[in-house]
Amino acid sequence: MDTVVAYLPAILRGTSVTVAVALCSAVLAVFLGLLGAWGKIAPSRTANAVTGAYTTLIRGVPDLVLMLLLFYGGQQLLNDIGAATGWWGYIEISHFTAGVFTIGFIYGAYMTETFRGAYLAIPRGQIEAGTACGMSGSLVFRRIVWPQLVRYALPGFGNNWLVLLKTTALVSVLGLHELVWESFTAGRSTRQLFTFFFVTMAIYLVLTAISDTGLRWLERKYSAGVRRA
């Protein structure tokens, strides 16, 4: 117990890195997800093909493989391009950036499906009615599509977020000093790996519980207009 208290600052620092990675990649994932959903719904063959390939690729390849590919391969690719064109010098992708980009890229694909499903759940007649009232496309989106899109997408978003939060543990394999890495280091130097991983699990459970509360609040807020049985 005393050792855990002694290493508490490191553990908490790691926790904050974990949370930061998760939040940044969630923002990226939501952005890519909205873009991807638009690409899947848009009446453009090219957009459909690109987003289709994106979601198929992501669902086929495990996260850690993509992460390592982006961290090592992406860095090499950037530097090769830089050397060939002379546009930039040597670039080093940080662990944090690699983690955020890979996780954001992966969960962007899952978010794409979530947002696409949510959009399709909005009754077509409402959008037609908006157009019939003389609303412009952006006004229809802002007043009719968006509020309902958020409502329908929230449960799926919540699931994706909880899985994403746990996926951030893999960034420790790249060497980012997040929660798992910090507790691994602390556990190894004190020869108390079990204790520290136990604490790690407890912290993940607390983060999950906090997310649950937040998600439930959001769901209540966005379904204020829905009558419940």
Binding site: L170, F184, Q192, L193, F194, T195, F197, F198
Partner: peptide
């Protein structure tokens, strides 16, 4: 179920492979 669904598989593997040897 709550414990195993709420924590990363990586940590579960680590606690068994690295952790149990503590005792």
């Amino acid at each position: 179920v709550y414990l195993f669904r709420g924590t990363p598989l990586l940590v579960q593997l680590y606690i068994i492979y690295y952790g149990l040897g503590q005792f």
